[in-house]
């Protein structure tokens, strides 16, 4: 980890990280804002009951929207949360390594007396700082927003935090493999295609598996199925194995990325 590089990278990517954070917080506030009116109308719950089970499952609404956490899980954590953080991880991971390698700018950084390991580790921390900042902004928005916009409804803090924690670990893993591809490939577009493609496949497998019972097995191949927000807030999932799995995938990806980058030839 090199302090000067970290500080500079934060300066360059700070705006991006802040806009992702603000954007995701605002979306969550919007969801919270509409919850009181939905909770009041009994019709919504009835309508949901008439919908096909698989469809509800696909959008994490199968446990109902009885509490505000459930509503957030269904309306936010199963779609927008995944989308925003996936885009952040894939794009920024790509820019932090593959773009510098592809364009040759990494040569200047490597020409300073810092090992490749130090430089890659610093870039990894920059990426992770963003993931943490975005999730932190969402947590704050959730807690403050509920008090402000849905004051009649009590947020179950423990359940809400657990959901965010597992969500963050999911994106620790996603950012991990994105960073790995970004560090081993010499072509920016190729790195983007790899990490973007795999993320899209993971998401599609998970969604298809939820929609069709016949394709349920597909979910075994998707990292995204480890994150089940609706079940987490209901307290229906065993969290430890999920956390260990996601943590391990992330950690191994980052370590592999840093080692592979230290040993590879760079035509810069």
């Amino acid at each position: 980890m090199n302090a000067a590089l970290y500080k500079n990278m934060l300066k360059v990517y700070g705006k991006t990280i802040i806009s992702y954070s603000v954007g995701s917080a605002l979306y969550l506030l919007l969801i919270i804002g509409i919850y009181p009116s939905i909770a009041k109308s009994k019709g919504m719950e009835q309508m949901l009951q008439q919908m096909p089970k698989q469809l509800l499952k696909a959008f994490d609404l199968h446990t109902g929207i009885g509490t505000i956490e459930q509503f957030m899980a269904g309306e936010y954590y199963s779609l927008l949360f995944l989308l925003i953080l996936s885009v952040y991880c894939v794009l920024i991971a790509n820019q932090l390594m593959a773009r510098l390698i592809d364009r040759g700018a990494i040569a200047y950084l490597l020409a300073t007396p810092n090992s490749r390991r130090t430089i890659a580790t610093t870039q990894a921390f920059v990426l992770l700082t963003g993931v943490i900042a975005i999730v932190a902004a969402i947590i704050v928005a959730g807690i403050v927003g509920t008090r402000w916009l849905a004051a009649d409804h009590a947020l179950n803090h423990a359940a809400f935090l657990k959901m965010n924690m597992v969500g963050m670990l999911l994106f620790f893993a996603v950012s991990g493999y994105s960073f790995f591809f970004s560090a081993i490939v010499s072509d920016e577009k190729q790195a983007l295609a790899l990490s973007g493609g795999i993320t899209f496949l993971f998401y599609s497998f998970d969604l298809a598996g939820k929609l069709t019972e016949k394709l349920e097995w597909l979910r075994h191949f998707s990292l995204f199925s480890a994150f089940r927000p609706a079940e987490i807030v209901q307290g229906q999932t065993e969290l430890l194995p999920v956390c260990v799995l996601l943590g391990a995938v992330g950690l191994i990806s980052y370590i592999a990325a840093i080692i592979a980058f230290s040993k590879r030839d760079l035509a810069v």
């Binding site: 360059v12 364009r103 200047y108 020409a111 007396p113 810092n114 090992s115 810069v268």
Partner: peptide, 20 residues
Amino acid sequence: ASIVQKYVGYLPGEISFLEG
């Protein structure tokens, strides 16, 4: 490499800097 870099100044052939 990181020891060598202490003694060395380098001008790459292709000019590409960090953005922003």
